[in-house]
Design a protein around this nucleic acid. Structure first.
Length: 639
DNA sequence: CAGGGAAGTT
DNA sequence: AACTTCC
């Protein structure tokens, strides 16, 4: 928690000055550091973002303690195979740590209670409930693993700022490097407001879902993530611009920098770089040789606390996989059985997690591109187009790390089985396909030794897109260079009609947003300004009960917009579409689309600065059948 | 590294 | 398809 005073003042002139302004324009700072060219992105609102990072406390352990409250009082570890992947704070006090071997953990803490955690179902469900809850306040939510979420609340901040002239408030929670009470919120009104929103959201997560967690409040994802962990269980921390140098600088190991993994750290070490400071002072040019231009820049930026990557809404999953690891598998019989087991569970999960509920509703909702969903339990009707099989072989020399995979399209007749809910048939048909893939890697007539098998459904597509020709429309978008232009959130739509693809984006995006959002609502007009986009699915966040509706018919960041595809396909044969001249395609794309949601109002809690206890308890009812908050008296047999 | 995912880049 | 990242 203390930071080294020495490194900040002397040398980092270039970037320190960028942050001298209490309200820095981060994009400009990033550009200055990384040498990016900003000229084609006219600066619209030179306002920095407010980013939240949420990190649930010992997530798996919390879920198990909710399922069985008796576990709250005992040292609890979650066991996957021979590893304690996480543990509650009672166990931590006794010296148990994450990813400790069971033997080791039992040694440290003989009373440790272990719950098997190989089946992720409950964790996955709860994880999405958290994301969904956050999304009900603001759709710009990006998941990182099962227990972390980023949120871009810049829009909410601006809205609140406009509403309240009242600057007489302080930061909620900690302020990094300060005594919180001593910090004047009026010096950093937007971050201070962010800390209040973070507190509200944490409160909502706790009272609606029963989970505690930490939050970080900062001006970009990197910083929000770094700062969220500074006060650990169930607390939050804000990072002021003037302390950016401290928080990055005091990371001793480069590996601690999010984005620097094992391999990168090793390469850096080979260059003689071990600490953040080392990299901060290392010329970017010497980095380019080892990493290439873009990565070199990114690494440099990261250690300077600069990160202009947008919060990209995660949306529905792009793949589902199931795997099992073991000491040794060496017979075909075992392999076949394991593969069938994994396929079975995947097919079951598909139904629960993404597959269509029924034709009628799905077609309708998909083509409207607006989903009213309760938790993610209303599905988007996509189906996997690809099956992938991955194995890990045991080898004396490269014992860990080596995986091989083969994939194949899922033939239509099998897809039908999955779609029509004939799960037994589907598994029976997928089995041989998977075995074919297996035999591309392993010669069954000779001996083998596997330590892992993974089966993955990927390339999830909605049926309209799937049934009518392979990569038809998607390829049109995928191969366009819309990617570049939309990759950052702060752009003015009208400014970037520089090429064919871009104008297509504008024409698609703008009518929808204008129709949907009232201009006096800063938050939602900001959304469209950002070129609001999600990673892939047409699944759209809509607040379950009250009123908040958000249309999302934007071209996504990678250029593949399922929404557009859907709408298009309802009227035009994609194969025909492909053959049309570009101008005609554009015309089709820009033609008036389905009417989107009309009323936009903010989630209620956000309008009420101070959430009350009673309100929270009251709203427990809203959590319907997915409510996991266990009232007392509910006892599940222990162990 | 482990474990069981998931996503993005090369 | 492999590699790398993250949890």
């Amino acid at each position: 928690m203390e930071k080294s005073e020495d490194q900040t003042d002397e040398d980092e002139t270039e970037w320190e000055s960028s942050f001298a302004d209490p309200v820095p324009f981060e994009a400009a700072g990033a550009a200055a550091v990384s040498g990016q060219n900003l000229s084609k992105t006219p600066t619209v609102a030179p306002t920095s973002r407010v980013i939240l990072h949420f990190d649930l406390d010992c997530f798996y352990a919390q879920v198990e303690m909710i399922r069985n409250p008796a576990l709250r009082e005992v040292p609890l570890g979650i066991q996957q195979k021979y590893i304690v992947v996480t543990c509650n704070y009672v166990a931590r006090q006794m010296g148990v740590t994450k990813l400790m071997s069971v033997v080791n953990a039992k040694e440290k803490c003989p009373q440790l209670v272990l719950v098997k955690g190989e089946d992720l179902t409950h964790y996955r469900e709860m994880s999405y409930k958290v994301t969904d809850l956050l999304m009900s306040y603001c759709p710009l939510v990006e998941r990182l693993g099962f227990d972390e979420n980023f949120m871009d609340i810049t829009g909410m901040i601006e809205k609140r700022l406009a509403e309240t002239s009242d600057c007489d408030f302080s930061f909620k929670g900690h302020v990094y490097g300060h005594v919180s009470a001593g910090v004047k919120a009026s010096d950093h009104p937007r971050l201070a407001l962010g800390s209040h929103i973070a507190a509200e959201l944490r409160e909502a997560i706790q009272c609606k879902l029963g989970l505690t967690g930490c939050a970080g409040i900062a001006t970009n994802k990197l910083l929000a993530k770094l700062v969220s962990g500074t006060f650990k269980p169930n607390q939050q921390t804000s990072l002021l611009p003037e302390n950016i140098g401290d928080i990055v600088g005091c990371l001793n190991s480069l590996r601690k920098v999010p984005g620097v993994g094992h391999q990168t750290a090793k390469k850096l070490q080979a260059l003689g770089l071990a600490t953040v400071k080392d990299l901060q002072h290392f010329p970017v040019n010497n980095l380019v040789k080892e990493f290439g231009g873009p990565t070199a820049q990114r690494l440099k930026s990261l250690v300077l606390g600069v990160d202009d990557s947008p919060v990209t809404p995660t949306g529905a999953p792009q793949s589902l996989s199931d795997e099992d690891s073991f000491k040794k598998m060496s017979s075909m019989k075992e392999v076949l059985e394991k593969i069938q087991e994994l396929l079975r569970s995947l097919v079951d999960r598909l139904e629960v997690e993404v597959e269509t509920c029924s034709e009628l509703m799905t077609e309708n909702m998909v083509s409207n591109s607006v989903f009213s969903f309760k938790s993610r339990m209303q599905k988007d009707g996509r189906q996997p187009q690809t099956l992938r099989l991955t194995i890990r072989r045991y080898t004396a020399t490269n014992k860990w790390f080596n995986r091989e995979s083969r994939q194949a399209p899922i033939p239509n007749h099998i897809a039908q089985k999955i779609a029509s809910g004939c799960k037994d048939d589907a598994v029976a048909q997928l089995g041989p396909l998977a075995m074919k893939l297996f035999h591309k890697m392993v010669d069954g007539s000779t001996s083998f030794h596997l330590t892992l098998i993974n089966v993955c459904f990927s390339n999830l597509q909605s049926r309209a897109a799937a049934s009518s020709g392979k990569a038809s429309i998607t390829s049109f978008f995928t191969h366009s260079n819309a990617t570049q232009a939309l990759s950052t959130q702060r752009q003015e739509p009208s400014s970037h009609s520089t090429n064919l693809q871009l104008s297509a984006c504008s024409t698609i995006t703008q009518p929808a947003s204008q129709k949907t959002f009232t201009t006096k609502d800063p938050f939602y007009s900001d959304l469209s300004l950002y070129g609001f986009s999600r990673k892939q699915s047409p699944l759209v966040a809509v607040e379950g009960s009250p009123h908040q509706k958000i249309a999302c018919s934007t071209v996504t960041h990678d250029g593949t917009d399922t929404t557009v595809t859907e709408q298009l396909l309802s009227n035009v044969d994609p194969e025909v579409f492909k053959l049309l001249p570009k101008e005609i395609q554009m015309e089709l794309l820009s033609s008036p689309s389905t009417d989107y949601a009309t009323s936009v109002s903010p989630a209620e809690l956000i309008n009420v600065p101070h959430t009350t206890e009673s309100k929270c308890t009251e709203s427990l009812k809203d959590v319907d059948h997915f409510n996991v908050v266990h009232k007392e008296g509910e006892k599940i047999g222990m162990f």
